[in-house]
């Protein structure tokens, strides 16, 4: 196992669509370094791509932080997507397949939940949105 302390938290600003690509590439690099299989690294990169795009679509800008996790013997990775945009008035509905206020596919958040092991959302109208997702090495 690679030492976890050598990796620092990396928070990246998301303000343009090229930041989406940078954020998901970074996520893949961190996941592989932690020992995730390439398949799982792809799932993580895809989830980051969705989260970063949500920030752009709904808040205009925000940040994505990727950090390693340890729980007993288990190693994992957390992605925190944070923005101070308008927030989501009805987060439960936002988690339903096919729901979207942006006119696009609307598969974003439910899809992210299926890609990752743990999913948490904190939001309220006018309060911004923080989505935290985690994945553990099986």
């Amino acid at each position: 196992m690679k030492p976890l302390e050598v990796m620092e938290d990396s928070a990246m600003a998301v303000a343009s669509d090229s930041d989406i690509v940078l954020a998901r590439n970074q996520g893949r690099v961190v996941a592989l370094r932690l020992g995730f299989r390439p398949t799982d690294a792809t799932l993580i990169a895809t989830a980051i791509s969705e989260l970063a795009r949500n920030i752009l679509l709904y808040a205009g800008s925000g940040e994505i932080a990727i950090r390693p996790l340890e729980r007993g013997k288990q190693v994992g990775l957390a992605v925190v997507a944070r923005d101070s945009g308008p927030g989501i008035a009805d987060p439960a509905r936002a988690m339903e397949d096919g729901y979207s206020t942006s006119g696009r596919l609307g598969l974003g958040l439910p899809g992210v939940r299926r890609l990752m092991d743990e999913f948490e959302i904190h939001t309220a109208a006018g309060q911004g949105t923080t989505v935290t997702v985690k994945k553990w090495i099986p």
Binding site: P38, A41, T42, T46, L107, R114
Partner: peptide, 13 residues
Amino acid sequence: QPDVAFAMVHMGL
């Protein structure tokens, strides 16, 4: 790619 296909179907794409 295989890994990409795997991620896509997980998303329902």
